[in-house]
Simulated scan of single mutants.
Amino acid sequence: MLRLLLCYGRFVMIVRMKAQNWLLLTYKVPAEPAKKRIALWRKLKGMGAVYLQNGVCLLPKNDDHTRRLKIIENEIDEMAGESVLLETVALDKAQEDKVVGRFKADRDEEYVEFIDKCSDFEAEIAKETAAKHFTYAELEENDVDLKKLQTWLEKIRKLDFYVGTRAAEATDRLAQCEALLDAYAQRVFEAHDENR
């Protein structure tokens, strides 16, 4: 824990600052069947875990993570594996920043992929607009694609424990996609009104 010295006149007071607590899971599972090992890895990554090395991962400590890691610990036992679940803190602020940086980097990779898909969505709308393809079927298809983007961003945000550097950009890009679909929908409605 970090300590801060506060001086008030002749008195010195030591205040403990709250350190970030993490849950550290170390595990070893049999190599075969590989599908069980891969499923375990996916489950942990799906929770937002950062791997420090093979079989060693970290999550911010909270009740949900504690509960889910205890369940995973039991699953590892059922796989004839070994595991240890610990609560830990960083040695100092520099180490804590390294770990937080790893979490942010993982989320930023996901945000970059998301932003690329937003570009694909924008290109699809531009293509349909250029072709003057203003149909309800196309609007419905694009609406489904937008809902997938919205759901995906929500999943990334749920695992973004420390607010990745690309989070705001991803949010802005989704808003642009939503506005683009609204404008496209308006063109579809206008095209169908003209046909009546």
Rank of each mutant, 00 (worst) to 15 (best):
M1R: 06
L2K: 07
L2R: 10
L5W: 07
Y8G: 02
G9H: 04
R10T: 06
M13A: 11
V15R: 09
V15L: 08
K18E: 11
A19K: 07
Q20N: 03
N21D: 08
W22F: 04
T26C: 06
T26E: 05
Y27V: 00
K28T: 04
V29K: 14
A31L: 05
A31N: 07
A31D: 04
A31Q: 13
E32K: 15
P33Q: 08
K35A: 00
K36T: 03
W41L: 01
W41A: 04
R42Q: 13
K43E: 15
L44C: 02
L44I: 01
M47A: 07
M47I: 00
M47F: 11
L52P: 10
Q53T: 13
N54A: 12
C57H: 15
L58C: 08
D64M: 11
D64A: 15
H65F: 01
T66M: 03
R68Q: 08
R68N: 04
K70V: 00
I71D: 11
N74D: 15
E75L: 02
I76T: 09
D77R: 00
M79Y: 03
E82I: 00
S83Q: 06
V84E: 13
V84K: 08
L86F: 05
E87I: 11
T88W: 01
V89G: 05
A90Y: 12
D92C: 09
Q95L: 10
E96S: 12
K98H: 15
K98S: 14
V99D: 03
R102F: 04
R102P: 01
K104M: 10
A105F: 01
R107N: 03
E109T: 15
E109C: 13
E109S: 14
E110F: 10
E110N: 14
E110H: 09
V112T: 01
I115A: 13
C118W: 10
C118T: 14
D120N: 12
D120Q: 07
F121N: 09
F121T: 04
E122D: 09
E122I: 01
A123M: 13
E124C: 11
E124T: 03
E124S: 08
K127E: 15
T129L: 13
A131C: 03
A131I: 05
K132H: 07
F134H: 07
E138Q: 11
L139Q: 14
L139Y: 03
E141T: 05
N142D: 06
N142V: 00
D145Q: 05
K147H: 05
L149V: 09
L149Y: 14
T151G: 07
L153C: 11
L153R: 01
K155F: 05
I156A: 06
R157F: 00
L159V: 07
L159P: 05
D160S: 10
F161K: 09
F161P: 08
Y162P: 10
G164K: 15
R166V: 09
R166Q: 14
A168P: 00
E169P: 01
R173E: 01
L174H: 00
Q176A: 12
E178K: 15
L180T: 04
A183I: 02
A183D: 14
A183E: 14
Y184K: 14
Q186K: 11
R187L: 10
V188D: 00
F189E: 06
E190W: 15
E190K: 15
D193L: 04
E194P: 00
R196T: 10
R196I: 12
